[in-house]
């Protein structure tokens, strides 16, 4: 856990995102993602039971909560990687219910994973090129005729190299992704997500397992996404990071949304501290003992 990281430049916070009182399920001025009554149970256990939640467009929203709160499951449901028992949710005004994951991605909602899924035995450049949408050569029959896809492939390659340079991975483009460090893989996964020009980027614990030397640049890249007009929704445990870069925070506990608001208000909310730490709420959230959280996290992971 990197507990003393600050972005190089103080980020400009987006405000005025919500309508009315900032309470769980409050309406947003311009929501990009809206979920209604999404429920998912495993056996008898309710993992996610979200009444109503809206994610504001053009902002960085953090989804926080103790482990086992159902954040990753909620992510999976939103992106089509898991199917809810009931509920509806829409992205950009289009319903996402019963839409398979790959079609969700094509609509401009790209996600990353908690455990990085860099494609180890593909080169870094191939990883990037795989991210591009609408490739002619991905059709089996057109693939046999290189002249049909060669020029498009060149464009994609140029774009990939451009993004790789921004992420400082351009020197590694010929290497297998498996040879990268954990943090570099996180970077690669984020860079790969950008290849498809998404409108909403969902990052599942982008900081987990990242070496402190790289967290700085990761934070900058996330802020950069907002500058470029993308919406970001991310799951994170590192409260310093949430406080510094998030414009809006949604707190989940036991599958429900328990609080919403801007980072500072939310973190002072006693309900949040209760949900997050159980009985251990003597200390400020950000100053929480990282060792303790680590152990807690592992325990809860095992229970899942």
């Amino acid at each position: 856990m990197s507990s003393d990281v600050t972005p190089t430049a103080t980020p400009v916070k987006t405000t005025g995102l919500h309508i009315g009182y900032a309470e769980p399920g409050c309406r947003k001025v311009d929501p990009i993602l809206v979920a209604d009554g999404v429920k998912r149970t495993f056996g008898g256990l309710t993992a996610v039971d979200v009444q109503h939640v809206e994610v504001p467009r053009g902002a960085i929203t953090a989804l926080i909560g103790p482990n086992g709160a159902g954040k990753t499951t909620f992510f999976n449901l939103l992106t089509g990687f898991d199917k809810p028992d009931e509920g509806s949710w829409e992205f950009d005004g289009r319903s996402l219910a019963h839409i398979p994951a790959y079609r969700v991605a094509r609509m401009g909602l790209i996600r990353t994973f908690q455990l990085t899924k860099s494609l180890g035995l593909l080169s870094v450049l191939d990883n990037m090129k795989l991210g591009a949408k609408g490739q002619t050569g991905e059709n089996l029959f057109r693939a046999i005729l290189p002249f049909l896809w060669r020029s498009q492939d060149k464009e994609i390659e140029a774009k990939a190299e451009d993004i790789l340079a921004r992420f400082k991975l351009d020197t590694k483009k010929e290497d297998y992704a498996a040879s990268l460090s954990g943090g570099q893989r996180k970077l690669l996964e984020m860079a790969r997500a950008l290849m498809s020009d998404p409108t909403l980027v969902m990052l599942d614990e982008p900081m987990a397992g990242v070496n402190p030397a790289l967290t700085q640049s990761l934070l900058d890249h996330i802020l950069d996404l907002k500058t470029q007009g993308m919406t970001v929704l991310f799951v994170e445990h590192d409260m310093h990071m949430v406080r510094h870069i998030a414009d809006w925070v949604i707190v989940m506990a036991e599958g429900k949304v328990v609080a919403e608001g801007d980072p500072h208000t939310v973190m002072a909310n006693p309900a949040v501290i209760d949900a997050y730490l159980g009985s251990h709420h003597d200390s400020d959230l950000g100053a929480e003992d990282p060792e303790h959280e680590h152990v807690l996290k592992e325990l809860l992971d095992d229970q899942q």
């Binding site: 790959y102 790209i110 994973f113 795989l130 949408k133 059709n139 089996l140 693939a143 046999i144």
Partner: peptide
């Protein structure tokens, strides 16, 4: 021919991790 084309790239990506490839819209 097909393995050096983008088709082959998707196929090899699936071998490595199909969820990642799915998340990229394939």
């Amino acid at each position: 021919l097909i393995m050096r084309a983008p088709w082959g790239r998707v196929i090899k990506g699936i071998r490595e991790d199909e969820d990642a490839v799915r998340a990229l819209g394939k």
